[in-house]
Nucleic acid binder design. Structure first.
Lengths: 154, 154
DNA sequence: GTTTGTCTTCGAGCGCGCTCAAAGATCTAC
DNA sequence: GTAGATCTTTGAGCGCGCTCGAAGACAAAC
């Protein structure tokens, strides 16, 4: 295998990762069943964050959470759905400032739908660019792995 | 143009738009020509960082840079190659602590090659996981975009 | 009723990765 | 020779996104 072939192989591996995107998450977007209630610990576990983080998100206005008579947070389905959205967007690198902007638009009603769409389109571009970047880094890494033993330099 | 070249070409086209690291950089991994000299501003421009950042990387031991008689940094080819590697790994989300670990191994010579390989393999897994995450977020975003006008919630 | 745990609010602290400011030496152009 | 940009070092500061601690109310188990 010469250098070009190795390079091509690395690129191939980077662009065609084993195991594709799961459809699971898409189903989450559609599912719309319950009117369950969750305490903060359960909610946190469900969205993969800490209770601290959930309180933080509420503090900075990303989500509003009703209380029970004792003053404890009670997460309902809309709150959970929003949190799932928020954490996914965070995981994908959207800064909190953008999320606040988006949430503000949501809270201002349907009239802001075009603006929200713009934000989403922008985010889509960002995601695509990020994926491309990562695939490049992956290609470089695959290449380095494939050729190790040859060169010593980093 | 053979298959490999076409693949590289396709990747270049798919990856280049947002500016930043390009397929170019992969060639840097193979290329090994020059003994050019660069001042810090040029070096910074070349790797897509600020002079501040380059000095910072030197301070924390990620790279060693010779000086000219006046005490100014003179970046040589090995230094640049290492910086390109470092910035690519940073861009792909590798924490500086990992990079220091890796660089320490490199500086300790060939005996650490297996350890370095381990780090690279681990990073490859991280990259794959990240890409999968982003593709998921992208799918979710595409879905939201496609269905906008329907639902109002977040 | 008492322990033990989880909840509340509020403010402060932290780790990361830069980023900048200050004070001074040096290079570049005119 | 002089102005202005760029270089040096050192130490401090900053923005982000949490993360924690303290002090106290409430809940669940015995």
């Amino acid at each position: 295998m010469n250098a070009n072939e190795q390079l091509a192989q690395a690129l191939r591996l980077a662009v065609d990762p084993p195991g594709g995107v799961s459809v699971h998450a898409l189903r989450d977007l559609v599912a719309d069943d319950d009117s369950r209630q969750w305490d903060i610990a359960t909610a946190a576990r469900h969205v993969g964050a800490s209770p601290h983080t959930l309180r933080y998100y509420e503090r900075i206005g990303l989500v509003t959470v009703p209380r029970n008579p004792a003053g404890h947070r009670v997460y309902d389905t809309p709150a959970i759905r929003r949190l799932v959205f928020l954490t996914r967007m965070r995981t994908s690198g959207m800064p909190i400032s953008d999320l606040r902007q988006y949430i503000d638009l949501v809270d201002r009603g349907d009239v802001t739908i075009p603006d929200r769409l713009d934000l989403l389109l922008e985010h889509r571009d960002t995601l695509r660019a990020q994926i491309a970047q990562l695939q490049l880094a992956l290609a470089a890494t695959e290449y380095k792995i494939a050729t190790y033993g040859g060169a010593t330099q980093p």
